[in-house]
Computed example of a mutant assay.
Amino acid sequence: MTGPRRDPDGELRARLREAAGVHRPDRARILARVKRGRAAEDQGAARPRLPDWVRVAGATAAVAGVLVAGGCAVASVVRDDAPARHPVAAPPGSRETGSREAGPLWSRGAVDPHSNEFWAQSNITLGTSTALTALTVELRVAQTGSVTSTGAWRSLPADDFTFTLDERDGFLVYRWTLKEGRTVPAGEWVFAGQYNHGRGGRDAGGDRYSAAATAASGPLAVRGGFTPGG
């Protein structure tokens, strides 16, 4: 035979009820805790807690200060690293020659700084503040000895121009002519002629360029030379 089954959960509940019946709370200790809690609240009231938005604003201002201080250095670096506005520059220590008029068309001529003792490139930078309906650009490179063309390019679309290369009167002549019905938009544009030459630094003092254009206001023209010794 087996005896009656034990009920652990029932025994636990009976013991808890018995303990609860004999427990007497310590009223003095409870009252003391309440008094201490109220005193702490009174001290906190003397030093009011800042609203959340004030704390957030303070933190934001601190972060903004750091960003502003760092931003000065970043702006300086970006400004120093920014590319030059004009894609063409004269060799170091030289001056550019060209034409700046009161009208909408201006120009600048310079020997490309990447030229070397055997090869050179002459750059014509043409600027216009209005659309051009006709344009002819001519580059004349003086035959200073063993000067032979190695090519030419322009920053405007090739299909918009007819290009010719001749040698006459002691010059290598590069000519770009805008095709009928095409236009040159306002902006800054480069026309460049490339050529080999005799070994050593070549004197570009005898080189010349010119440009004739037509705009809504009428005919326009510029001309100039190139920096010697490029």
Rank of each mutant, 00 (worst) to 15 (best):
T144I: 05
N196F: 10
L178D: 00
D169S: 03
A158S: 10
E180S: 05
Q143E: 14
Q194I: 06
V173N: 10
F171S: 07
P157G: 03
A186K: 02
V190N: 11
A142I: 04
V184D: 10
G198K: 00
V147R: 14
Y195T: 10
R182Q: 03
R182D: 03
V184I: 06
D159M: 13
G170E: 07
L165S: 12
A152C: 04
D166H: 03
E167A: 15
V141Y: 09
F161Y: 14
D160M: 05
L165F: 02
G187I: 00
A192T: 14
G198L: 00
T150Y: 05
W153M: 06
G151I: 02
G193P: 09
G181M: 15
A158H: 02
E167W: 01
S155N: 12
R175G: 08
A186H: 01
L156S: 05
D160N: 10
V190L: 15
E188C: 15
A186L: 04
V173Y: 12
T150H: 13
G181I: 11
S155F: 12
A158M: 00
G151L: 11
K179S: 11
D169L: 00
G187K: 04
R175H: 06
A158G: 11
W153A: 13
F163K: 04
G181T: 12
A186R: 04
E188D: 13
G145Y: 01
L165R: 01
V190I: 14
T177E: 10
H197G: 06
F161W: 13
A158L: 00
V184Q: 15
F191S: 07
S146V: 06
S149C: 01
V190M: 11
T144M: 11
A142M: 09
V141F: 08
Y195K: 02
T148G: 02
R182M: 04
A158E: 03
A152I: 00
A142R: 10
T164Y: 03
T150C: 06
Q143R: 09
W153P: 04
S155G: 12
S146A: 13
V184M: 05
G170D: 02
G198C: 02
G145R: 01
V147Q: 09
E180I: 00
F163G: 07
G198A: 04
T162W: 08
D160P: 05
Y174F: 05
L172Y: 03
